[in-house]
Design a protein around this nucleic acid. Structure first.
Length: 282
DNA sequence: CGCCAGGCTTCTA
DNA sequence: TAGAAGCATGGC
């Protein structure tokens, strides 16, 4: 079943109405992306750069959102980016039999898993290791400002070709620490063809994970995040420190079998729930 | 100041 | 081959 929101072009952009299961703060500040920011106090307006474009989005009413772009751009970039063809009501309904998932989905019913660019997602989660979200954002911004193509409203994420030309010293201004050499290794292996990002969609989850782990600095967790958030492998299940705490408390015997088909999306509800309620998992 | 961060590589027993 | 130490940097 497809979601039944409406798309209406208007003077300022594209108006989405009856758009359910869609919360800007829950989607854009739940740890899956690092280049979106609220531009107002109430977090009703957000601005970000992705897919080579800068975009502003505004919540203009109940289940109503204004995307400040052309209809052509909306359909080509943002409809797939926000995965608006996927019916999250149906997915959440399938999770309700599990009382813990009922709680986690009720806590943040507007979460969605983005379909980000694979290369960018791989790099941002290489940067994420043993790091905090605030600093990750800073390193990613400096990476784009230093090596990315200038575009309207900011800088695009740099291509692997551009990054592969850089030296370790060139990356010093990013202050990425020990992760800088991992970024270069990723870029070099993509450019050389040893790592074939374009082939990942046709690989199984296990194949794809092994393939990405050829890169120095990419282990199971970084590979899982890249696969889930950048390559739409919804059977990836990233286990970071928050998820380990949450799983130990909520599912000490592992994720129930009934949830396995939705494990990637379930992971995102659980991660957000754990991160926002840390006192439950001391 | 000390502890920790959406981990991984390297060293050690 | 499992487990611990080391890693750059800075947020809190």
């Amino acid at each position: 079943m497809k979601p039944n929101y409406q798309i209406t072009p208007c003077a300022e952009g594209v108006l989405l109405s009856a758009l359910r299961d869609f919360s800007l703060p829950q989607i854009l500040d739940c740890g899956q992306c690092f280049r979106w920011q609220p531009t107002d106090e109430g977090e009703n307006c957000w601005r970000g750069i992705a897919m080579g474009r800068c975009l502003s989005i505004e919540k203009t009413g109940e289940e109503q959102f204004l995307f400040r772009c052309s209809e052509e751009e909306f359909r080509r970039l943002w409809l797939p980016y926000f995965d608006l063809e996927l019916d999250y009501s149906a997915i959440k309904a399938a999770l309700q039999d599990d009382p813990i998932m009922a709680e986690a989905t009720a806590y943040a019913p507007g979460i969605r898993v983005l379909r980000q660019d694979g290369w960018e997602t791989l790099c941002t989660f290489i940067i994420s290791q043993n790091n905090n979200i605030k600093r990750i954002r800073g390193i990613v911004e400096r990476l784009c400002e230093t090596f990315g193509q200038p575009i309207e409203g900011g800088y695009d994420f740099p291509s692997p070709q551009r990054l592969a030309q850089a030296s370790l010293e060139d990356l010093a201004p990013l202050r990425a620490g020990f992760r800088a050499k991992y970024l270069l290794d990723a870029a070099q292996k993509v450019v050389s063809g040893q790592v074939r990002l374009e082939a990942i969609p046709s690989m199984s989850y296990e194949e794809a994970s092994d393939h990405l782990q050829q890169i120095c600095g990419v282990g199971p967790k970084v590979a899982d995040c890249a696969l889930l958030f950048g390559f739409y492998k919804l059977d990836a299940f990233p286990m970071d420190v928050w998820m380990k705490r949450a799983m130990a408390t909520l599912y000490p015997h592992g994720l129930p079998e009934a949830l396995l088909p939705y494990r990637g999306i379930a992971q995102q509800y659980l991660f957000h729930y754990a991160r926002r309620n840390p006192q439950l998992f001391d």
